[in-house]
């Protein structure tokens, strides 16, 4: 499916929809799975420090114009999800500046904020309200979301009872139904079975007509090649390349010194 063809075109002189300017994100975190006061005291007694600094992004800059669909590729831990979170405003930069024009709908790491004890409908409403929609808008949309996700009456059942396919379909459905100007999708295309994938692709093509930009993080290089007209390759927090998907994929696979086929097996 060629999504890029149906996309909007930028008007001349229009500022970029997303502008990432020399952004670095550094954070301190602990090695401990569950940090406790007890372990902090024990550590203090031994004179140890458990905090270590993660440089997730280092001086990343790029602009994205209206109508672009940008694929983000890179190895595990390259900083792809951190970049998405920075664009979504979840992780503010440690230095630099991110400018985003429009409403963002993020589908990050599958699941918009699903609390497993609540029903699907409650989760949809909560997610919509958290992203700044009004109650009326969200309630009206909940039906559409359920219908698209094909989960029927399960919408009023706690999410913990869902199969993983239902869960992913709902997550995808939520983020595409929140009228996003900018859509962030993190590895979502593995959602659902073959028929849902076709439907999801069609929906994304439709969205690209109204949306201003789309970001897609994926390990499936084929998906990036098919759906995107622009690509970013990130490695260890640095932007290695910002070019066409073909050029980025070529450079990336060469860098990895493995054939592209090894990566495309998982894709349909």
């Amino acid at each position: 499916m060629d999504i890029a063809h149906s996309a909007q075109k930028p008007s001349p002189g229009e500022p970029p929809v997303v502008s990432v300017q020399d952004v670095s994100i550094t954070y301190r975190t602990t090695f401990e799975k569950v940090p406790t006061l007890k372990s902090a005291i024990v550590r203090f007694g031994r004179g140890e420090r458990a905090v270590h600094v993660v440089e997730a992004l280092r001086g990343v800059s790029f602009d994205v114009t209206r109508g672009s669909s940008v694929g983000i590729i890179g190895a595990n831990g390259a900083g792809k999800s951190t970049l998405m979170r920075a664009i979504a405003g979840v992780l503010p930069p440690s230095s630099g500046r991110v400018e985003v024009r429009g409403r963002i709908s993020a589908l990050l790491a599958l699941g918009v904020g699903f609390n497993s004890a609540l029903t699907g409908r409650e989760n949809v409403i909560l997610g919509g309200l958290a992203s700044g929609l009004s109650r009326k808008e969200v309630v009206a949309r909940a039906e559409e979301v359920a219908a698209f996700a094909e989960i029927g009456e399960f919408i009023d059942v706690p999410v913990r009872t869902y199969s993983s396919g239902m869960y992913q379909r709902l997550a995808f459905s939520v983020s595409v139904h929140m009228d996003p100007d900018i859509l962030l999708i993190d590895e979502a295309l593995s959602a659902g079975d073959a028929s849902f994938k076709v439907k999801a692709n069609a929906k994304m093509a439709e969205l690209m007509k109204s949306a201003r930009a789309m970001f897609l993080v994926s390990h499936s290089l084929n998906a990036v090649r098919e759906m995107c007209d622009d690509a970013l390759w990130i490695h260890k927090g640095k932007l290695m390349m910002h070019d066409t998907p073909d050029a980025c994929i070529k450079a990336y696979t060469k860098f990895l010194e493995v054939g592209e086929n090894a990566f495309t097996l998982e894709d349909l």
């Binding site: 920075a86 405003g89 503010p92 930069p93 440690s94 230095s95 630099g96 500046r97 991110v98 400018e99 985003v100 024009r101 429009g102 409403r103 963002i104």
Partner: peptide, 18 residues
């Protein structure tokens, strides 16, 4: 977290370190 400035027609979000 986000500094929100209302553009003429758009919502513009600027994320900067504080």
């Amino acid at each position: 977290m986000a500094r929100l400035a209302t553009d003429t027609a758009d919502e513009v979000h600027v994320y900067e370190p504080h």
